[in-house]
Amino acid sequence: MFEPGHLHRSNPPGQSGQPGYSIDFYYEVREDPQEGPMLHGRLVGEIEGKAFEEVFEMHRDTAFNFASVISRLTARHGLPANHSLIMSAHAEYDAIFEDIRAKLHARPGDSVDLDHLERDGL
Score class of each variant (00 low, 15 high):
Arg9Cys: 01
Val55Thr: 14
Ala75Asp: 02
Met58Ile: 12
Asp24Leu: 05
Glu48His: 13
Ala63Gln: 04
Pro33Thr: 13
Pro13Val: 07
Gly14Met: 03
Pro80Ile: 08
Phe56Pro: 01
Ser88Glu: 11
Met87His: 13
Arg42Asp: 03
His83Ile: 14
Ala89Tyr: 03
Gly17Trp: 03
Gly36Asn: 02
Gln15Leu: 14
Phe56Leu: 07
Phe52Arg: 06
Ala63Asn: 10
Glu35Ser: 14
Gly49Trp: 07
Glu28Tyr: 03
Pro13Gln: 08
Ile96Arg: 06
Gln34Ile: 14
His90Ala: 11
Glu53Cys: 04
His83Glu: 10
Phe56Thr: 01
Ile96Phe: 08
Leu73Phe: 02
Arg60Asn: 07
Leu79Thr: 01
Glu31Ala: 06
Ala67Leu: 04
Pro12Val: 07
Leu79Tyr: 12
Ser16Pro: 00
Ser16Asp: 09
Val44Thr: 14
Glu31Val: 09
Gly14Lys: 10
Pro12Thr: 08
Leu79Met: 07
Met58Pro: 00
Arg101Gly: 00
Gly36Pro: 01
Ala51Ser: 10
Ala51Asn: 00
Pro80Phe: 00
His6Val: 13
Arg76His: 06
Arg9Leu: 04
Ile100Ser: 09
Phe52Trp: 11
Leu73Gly: 06
Pro37Asp: 11
Glu98Lys: 15
Arg42Val: 15
Pro19Glu: 12
Ser68Glu: 13
Phe64Cys: 03
Ile86Asn: 02
Asp61Thr: 09
Pro37Trp: 02
Ile96Gln: 08
Pro33Cys: 12
Ile23Glu: 03
Arg60Cys: 12
Glu98Trp: 05
Leu85Gly: 09
Arg72Val: 09
Ile96Met: 15
Leu7Trp: 01
Asp32Lys: 09
Leu43Phe: 00
Tyr26Asp: 14
Pro13Asp: 08
Ala95Phe: 01
Met87Lys: 15
His59Pro: 00
Phe52Cys: 06
Ala95Val: 07
His8Ile: 10
His8Pro: 02
Pro33Glu: 12
Asp99Ile: 10
Asp94His: 08
Leu43Gly: 07
Phe64Trp: 13
Ala63His: 00
Glu92Arg: 15
Asn11Asp: 06
Pro33His: 05
Ser22Lys: 11
Val69His: 00
His40Cys: 12
His59Asn: 13
Gly49Pro: 06
Tyr27Met: 03
Asn82Phe: 15
His40Lys: 14
Arg30Val: 15
Phe64Ile: 12
Pro37Asn: 03
